[in-house]
C-alpha cells in the first residue's frame, strides 16, 4: 500500500498534485480547531474589509473572517463527504459482491433496481426530500441522505470487477480446496478491489461535495453551519459580486475547484495504476 503511494508520487504528476492539494485541505481543516472566531457568530470583525495582513482573505458583509470561515467550511464539507462515502461504499460493496459473485436471477433482479438508481435524475428527488426535512439537514443527516443515494454507479463498477475475478484460475483453486464463499471474497477478492474502492470513493466524494454545494445554493441545507456550499450561498445572496466583495465569493469557489480537480486526478491516477497495460508502461519508464 505505502509502496504503491510512493510509486504514484514519483511517477504520476496528477497523483502528486491531487495528493498535495488534499494534504493542504486536511491541514486547513485541522487549522479550524485553532480559529480565534466562532463561525456561527456574526459581526466579530469589521465588515467588508479587503484582504490584508490582519484578515488574510478579507471579511464578509456579516462581519466574519473569510480565511477562518473557509477552514470551518472545508472541515465540514470533508466530514460530510466522508460520512456519505462510507455509507454508500458499504451498500455498493455489498451489492457489487453479491450480484457479481452469485449471478443468476438475483443478479438480474438487483441490477435492474441498481440501473434504475443510475438513470433516475437524483437532483429533483434530493431537492424534494431536502425540502421536506428542511431544518433537520445538519452535517450528519445530509451525509446519510447523500450516502443512501450515491451507491448505484459504483456498485455496477465493482460488480464488473468481481465478474472478471470470478472467472480467474485462483477462484477455482480456492473453491476446489474447500474455501468458504465468504472467506474467498474477503481473503482473495478484497485485495484486488480495495484500490478500485479507493478510486470510486474519490469520485463519490467529489459528487457529494458538489451535491452539497448545489443543495446549499438552493437554501436547502442548514445555512448556519459553514460548509463550502453555504459560504457560496451567503456570498451570492448578499450580492457580493455586485458590491465588489470578490474575495468573499472567490474563496469558496476557488477552494471547490481545487478540491474537485485534485479528487478527480487522484481517482484517475489510482484507476490507471490498476490497469495492467499502463502498469507495463510504468515498468518500462522505471527501467529506462
Amino acid at each position: 500500500m505505502f509502496s504503491a503511494i510512493k510509486d504514484l508520487l514519483k511517477y504520476d504528476k496528477r497523483f502528486t498534485f491531487g495528493f498535495s492539494v488534499m494534504t493542504l485541505m486536511i491541514f486547513l481543516a485541522i487549522l479550524s480547531f485553532f480559529s480565534p472566531y466562532d463561525p456561527k457568530v456574526w459581526n466579530v470583525v469589521p465588515r467588508d474589509m479587503p484582504p490584508s495582513l490582519k484578515h488574510l482573505l478579507g471579511t464578509t458583509s456579516m462581519g466574519q473572517d473569510v480565511f477562518w470561515l473557509a477552514t470551518y467550511a472545508i472541515r465540514n464539507s470533508l466530514l460530510l463527504s466522508v460520512i456519505a462515502v462510507i455509507i454508500s461504499r458499504v451498500i455498493a460493496i455489498l451489492l457489487g459482491l453479491i450480484t457479481g459473485y452469485k449471478g443468476g436471477f438475483l443478479d438480474r433482479f438487483l441490477m435492474t433496481i441498481n440501473d434504475s438508481f443510475v438513470i433516475l435524475p437524483l437532483l429533483p428527488i434530493l431537492i424534494l426530500i431536502a425540502s421536506v426535512i428542511k431544518g433537520a439537514l445538519n452535517i450528519n443527516n445530509l451525509g446519510i441522505l447523500l450516502g443512501i443515494f450515491g451507491w448505484a454507479w459504483d456498485a455496477r463498477v465493482l460488480r464488473s470487477q468481481i465478474l472478471s475475478l470470478r472467472e480467474r484460475e485462483f477462484t477455482y483453486t480456492a473453491k476446489l480446496s474447500g474455501m468458504k464463499t465468504l472467506s474467498i471474497i474477503i481473503k482473495e477478492y478484497l485485495p484486488f478491489i480495495i484500490p478500485l474502492i479507493m478510486a470510486t470513493a474519490m469520485n463519490n466524494m467529489l459528487w457529494v461535495i458538489g451535491m452539497e454545494v448545489t443543495l446549499a445554493i438552493l437554501g436547502l441545507s442548514s445555512l448556519e453551519i459553514p460548509t463550502l456550499g453555504t459560504m457560496i450561498h451567503w456570498s451570492v445572496n448578499s450580492q457580493s459580486l455586485l458590491l465588489g466583495i470578490w474575495w468573499w465569493i472567490l474563496t469558496p469557489v476557488f477552494i471547490c475547484i481545487l478540491l474537485f480537480i485534485s479528487l478527480y486526478m487522484l481517482s484517475v491516477s489510482i484507476s490507471e495504476f490498476l490497469d495492467p497495460r499502463t502498469r507495463l508502461q510504468r515498468i518500462e519508464v522505471m527501467k529506462g
Binding site: 496528477r14 467529489l206 458538489g210 454545494v213 448545489t214 445554493i217 457560496i232 451570492v236 459580486l241 465569493i249 469557489v253 471547490c256 475547484i257 474537485f260 480537480i261 479528487l263 478527480y264 486526478m265 484517475v268
Partner: peptide, 18 residues
C-alpha cells in the same frame, strides 16, 4: 478537459457568469 471535467455545473456556470 481534465480541469473542467470534475467541476460541477453550478461552479462552471457561476464562473462564466462572473
Amino acid at each position: 478537459a481534465m480541469v473542467i471535467r470534475p467541476v460541477p455545473y453550478y461552479i462552471v456556470a457561476l464562473g462564466l457568469l462572473i
